[in-house]
Design a protein around this nucleic acid. Structure first.
Lengths: 205, 205
DNA sequence: GATAGTGGCGAGTGCCACTATCCATACTTT
DNA sequence: AAAGTATGGATAGTGGCACTCGCCACTATC
């Protein structure tokens, strides 16, 4: 971690400035190192932009807000922003999403950012000729519930209350990466069973 | 979709040039439109780079190769490239991953890119004080297997053999996005149940 | 026959995550 | 005490990437 980079993060508001002991001497503590690791994790593994990370840390550092609001604010920058404003059929996709939320009994906003992201992805899939994919959406939702349960379980056992928000952010971002990697491995396994290969370089999907 | 952008894609090798009917007139067909949609999906939803997409389409278009090799080549650019070379403890994480693959009986390469990505994420988690997370890794793996089964099921029923490779790419990328969104929704649900909120703006994580 | 569009190509744009340079001051070494 | 080095702060520059512009010769269209 180079010094100029750290200065850059301080300027961008990702990292609090060290406490000045003299006009040109500042001291950094364990909290700074920890924050730095958080930034690197969100940046490298999560692929977040500096602006998004700024949003996250501002929410994490906000002292007086009720927990669930901080959670909302902190995780809002985590859902990726899709460029295109869906050429068409987005309404139908939204209905599908709303129906899923309804059927599952989820207490979630059918017009929130996560629902938007889901609808956008479904539209893209449909445009590529995979409209029938919605038929397996339930299996995905089952898996998502399973993962969410595991996350809650972990949080309940291993996370202190004051670390809750940061843990939620970390878990959301790194959890995505971990699950994606596991899915790749499971796909590789399936593909190799199907086509009868067992070793070699990259591993077929 | 602006004309210069399309010209750019052709130049970058993402999109085959149209068939020239005159020295300066080319005709584009359904295949081009489809390819364009694929590119936009990978770019916008999947967040792939142009270079990665070039790798994908080259593999997809390669006619003579055995299916599993094309699958491997096509999905290789899909696993994200993490910048940092893990400060330490990567060896232990690798062992954890290898152990998981072994325990699951997965036919997957414990030193392939997906395994690498998983190990990197685990290291990052550990550095942030969440080393115990490995305890819930099995639940994640269960979910990943469930999703992979659903994917296979979908492919078996709805995908023609000649579309297999492209579908695998699309499914890998969009599937990630879809699952991530569903996970967000499931988290929102859990959080709202826990903190007793039911509506309002963004949806708390 | 003027306007507008096309293929092809090199160069330019804007955004983003850094990185280099500078300055004045302060700590460290000898 | 003198020399060298490091730090905080600020401004400007770099490189990569996904486009985007402008130019050219030519052609399709009104």
């Amino acid at each position: 971690m180079s010094v100029p980079t750290i200065k850059f993060y301080v300027r961008e508001g990702l990292l609090p400035a060290g406490e000045l002991t003299s006009p040109n001497q500042a001291s950094y503590g364990e909290a700074h190192v920890r924050r730095l690791r958080l930034i690197r994790a969100l940046l490298d593994v999560g692929g977040l932009s500096v602006a998004a990370i700024r949003g996250v840390v501002m929410a994490v550092d906000d002292p007086g807000r009720p927990v669930h609001m901080v959670l909302g604010a902190a995780t809002k920058p985590l859902v990726p922003r899709y460029g295109r404003e869906a050429d068409g059929g987005i309404e139908e996709a939204r209905k599908t999403v709303a129906g899923l939320i309804e059927a599952r009994g989820w207490r979630a906003d059918p017009s929130g950012p996560a629902s938007d992201a889901l609808a956008t992805a479904l539209v893209a899939l449909d445009e590529l000729g995979h409209g029938r994919f919605v038929e397996v959406l339930d299996a995905y939702a089952d898996a998502a519930e399973g993962v969410a349960r595991a996350d809650l379980d972990y949080v309940a056992h291993h996370v202190a209350r004051e670390e809750l928000v940061e843990s939620a952010v970390v878990g959301t971002v790194l959890g995505d990466a971990i699950f994606a990697a596991l899915r790749r491995l499971a796909h590789t396994d399936a593909s190799n069973r199907m086509f009868g290969r067992t070793e070699e370089d990259g591993g077929a999907e």
